[in-house]
Write a protein that binds this DNA or RNA. Sequence first.
RNA 1: GUGGCUAUAGCUCAGUUGGUUAGAGCGCCAGAUUGUGAUUCUGGAUGUCGCCGGUUCGAGUCCGGUUAGCCACCCCA
Length: 445
Amino acid sequence: MTDKLIKPQTLKGFRDYLPGPMMAREQLMETARRVYRSFGFSPIDTPALEYAEVLLGKAGDESNKQLFRFTDQGDRDVAMRFDLTVPFARFAAEHMNELGTPFKRYHIGTVWRGEKPAKGRFREFVQCDFDTIGTESNVADTETTFVMHDLMTALGFERFTIRINNRLVLNGLLEKLGVTEKSTAILRALDKLLKIGRDAVVAEMVEQAQITAEQAGQVLDFAALKGSPDEILLKLSPMLQGSERGEKGIARLNELFASARTAGIPAERLALDVSIARGLDYYTGTIYETFLGDLPGIGSVCSGGRYDNLAGLFTRQSLPGVGGSLGLDRLLAAMEELKLLPAVSTPAPVLVTIFDASRVGDYLRIARALREAGINAEVYPEAKAVGKQLQYANRKGFQIALIAGSDEFAAGTWQIKDLAASQQRSVPEADLITAVREILSLPGA
RNA sequence: GUGGCUAUAGCUCAGUUGGUUAGAGCGCCAGAUUGUGAUUCUGGAUGUCGCCGGUUCGAGUCCGGUUAGCCACCCCA
């Protein structure tokens, strides 16, 4: 009896999800699924655990990937996936003959990283990826923009900006400046422009990338261009003249924005921002970042880009592609901060109270009838005081409570109580489903 | 990984130069005509003061360690 209790606790960086947040999470995932499917992306899944060499790549550079890595019972060197992209590269190389190209897939899954946890950064979190591989067509880049846009509106956001750039444009400029081989360090510094300011970025470029202050200044002048996409592209054009890459980048951006306009994507939600570079080395073309109008500080909630060769580590076949990833947990954190999460912790809108213990079958029967009509319903399991049962309904966020005692059973009616409106009326059982639908504003009322 | 801050009731926090039975608000539980929540009134319980050790007659308070969280930096699929 006096055994020492085990302290209930989760590992650092790992979290529990209570019903309220979890229902919001599931809804986000469901929305993402729906939007991805509407564009023809197919679902796939891959194992959480892979051979370590698959995830590590050729370099075997474990240090900055922070893998959870161990030896399994069969003495294999294994690791948990730290993103969905590398497993997808392995997957694509392994199954390309069965899939054919172009191939569009979405993948919603948990990933693990042994990084130090911080705000919006955990050791276990969910990513919602979508990619189109096997085509270099700019149509795929444009549609990637549409996916991000439709995803955000489907999630209930009106005020957001998808910032778009193209690495070819940046690389074209670096090429003209003759500093191509230092691009990684330069872009990394450029990415911090908003955060640390122009002077600090120049300093970092000079120090880290070893270019002249003049060259750094030119990169920043370039990145500081403001205006509509058309205006910026017009100014960029002469600066990149003669650079094959740069001109191609401009052409692709031009086409992307023109198509978006034709297809009816609101112009105010798209921006050409030459300063975004993203930290990822493998992006080679279009780059996307999505910021919330009401909470830009939390960072990009939906990002992505084009890459030349997804699966170079696993196959000699070249697999170009473009895709993106919804940062589910970061978005959830943003919604929490913006108070967009409802305080509901039940997936059922209707609670059937038990008033007369001898009529349990009738309460269970009516709940079943509701479910058959597509309305989620829960039966309170005990014949406690009605006040207690209503208190439970109120606390969990039920919208409707059904009550019936001897009077109602004699008359063949139910008391239907609209908790939020604080209104109650008696309806014949035959009209109950309709009355419930009415309160819930469902069709068929 | 580096630096800083924090840890007291379910939650947000107070707690004097170290001193008796550790407090508030919210929430929770019970009751206020036994068929009605959220509002009102009354009453009640909150707890190994994160954990381990040290100093002291005496530690929520001081010191060391440890675990967890927050902030900044680093890094970034």
